[in-house]
Amino acid sequence: MSDDHSPEYYKKKFIPLIYLVGGILIAGTIITFAADKMGIAERWGFVNATIFAMSVAVVKASAVIYIFMHLKWDIKLKTISITLGSTVIFFIGMMCLTVGSEIDSNKPGHEDNTWNHVEQSDPKTVPDDK
């Protein structure tokens, strides 16, 4: 944080902000934990539960980055948002590619249809090479 803030600013504004963010973090933890104990995975389905838990975690993480790591005062909000957003998008893209290449690949027990672009002709009608 740049030094142009007065001591008054820290006492009046910043310290309450710390308590607020601390509260958000604790509340987020309790919400996630309680939701899990109430069994949201069964009720909402696993994917929705994951989205919920990850959203809470992202909110908590943003609060930490924004206030505790005081990026709010260090660089512009727009820059942070774009950086964080593009990081998330990049990460998701990478995961789609890696996991995608894993899922699509030929696994035992799964039929590999990678090369089946053309309809296969009936093997009986194919003339024997020899």
């Binding site: 990478m94 590619l97 995608g100 290449s101 699509d104 690949s105 030929n106 590999d112 990678t114 090369w115």
Partner: peptide, 21 residues
């Protein structure tokens, strides 16, 4: 950072992913 899997064409990756890389 987004070309790495061209070292891995022979790992049985799908043709879509291979096309991307």
């Amino acid at each position: 950072f987004i070309v790495w899997a061209h070292h891995m064409y022979l790992t049985g990756m799908s043709s879509k992913v291979a096309t991307f890389f």
